[in-house]
């Protein structure tokens, strides 16, 4: 018999600290598989963030820089500009990328830095005990929204993949999930596509991977994967929001968003 499934070479053969069933482990593996496929392991520099994925350097067999909370995209900018021949990726949670690191990700994306960002959205701050994140669903109970997130007080969850797709510097933006075999197979494809963008020097690529936090959600790993299918995907639809390399002027969904010219000075400002 021939081995048809094995650990990717880019993923170290060690026990992770992730809780049972946490999708971080699965997403790590898919990223490592893409590294193997493109043969970039030797020239990859990962940028780790703060959150449950903070031990990235212990799991991937590549060089890793540890960024302060939220700053991974800015650190990756420096790494890529100093070492343009390297393959640079960040791996960030939603508390990291969509809260404290919003400025860094938006400007790195808008500048069109030639990096790949893996954004793991589990709708909570897992590492610190399950606080509300900007991505927490309305009604979702967390340790800082014990009665559920309220739209009136807390606003709506941020859809980062769609938001970033509007920026001129973004070449590729997609949202994937790994909760079922079918979604996982598609996630593999999109992650490889995001890698291809950087390997071919085609600009900033962004993957939002819906994930779970069975521990903070207070459910079993199986229930957590089911919740992704039932609740998360409904608000955070899977799909490709921008794909400039495949861009075909006839198919509008993947067309780059028109950049508006300078906006007129608002009328009311003249009176102040």
């Amino acid at each position: 018999m021939q081995q048809v499934f094995k650990r990717p070479v880019s993923l170290k053969d060690v026990q992770t600290h992730f809780c049972p069933g946490c999708n971080h482990g699965t997403i790590h593996r898919l990223v490592a598989e893409a590294m193997d496929e493109f043969g970039v392991r030797e020239r990859t520099i990962g940028v780790a963030s703060v959150g449950c994925s903070v031990f990235l350097y212990g799991y991937f067999d590549v060089d890793v820089v540890e960024a302060p909370h939220g700053r991974a995209a800015a650190v990756a900018t420096g790494v890529k500009r100093a070492r343009p021949d390297s393959f640079v990726f960040t791996y960030q949670g939603d508390g990291d990328l969509a809260a404290i690191g919003t400025a860094e990700i938006i400007h790195a994306a808008n500048r069109g830095e030639d990096i790949t960002v893996i954004f793991v959205n589990n709708t909570t701050y897992g590492m610190t005990g399950g606080q509300m994140a900007p991505t927490t669903l309305v009604g979702q109970k967390t340790s800082t929204s014990p009665y559920g997130r309220e739209h009136a007080k807390d606003g709506s969850p941020i859809r980062m993949a769609e938001l970033l797709a509007q920026l001129g510097g973004v070449a590729f933006s997609a949202r994937v999930a790994v909760n079922t075999s079918r979604n996982l197979m598609d996630a593999k494809k999109q992650i490889k596509k995001a890698f291809r963008y950087q390997v071919e020097g085609k600009g900033f690529s962004f993957i939002e991977a819906l994930s779970t936090c069975p521990t903070a959600w207070g459910v079993t790993p199986i229930q957590a994967n089911e919740r992704v299918g039932r609740e998360l995907i409904e608000y955070f639809p899977l799909g490709i929001f921008k794909d400039t390399a495949d861009w075909n002027p006839q198919s509008s969904p993947t067309a780059p968003v028109e950049q508006p010219g300078a906006l007129p000075f608002p009328e009311f400002m003249h009176e102040i």
């Binding site: 018999m1 499934f5 790994v178 197979m185």
Partner: peptide, 13 residues
């Protein structure tokens, strides 16, 4: 594929 801990190896004819 679904195992977050890469604890399963698969062999096939």
């Amino acid at each position: 594929e679904l195992c977050p801990d890469v604890a399963i190896s698969v062999f096939k004819d």
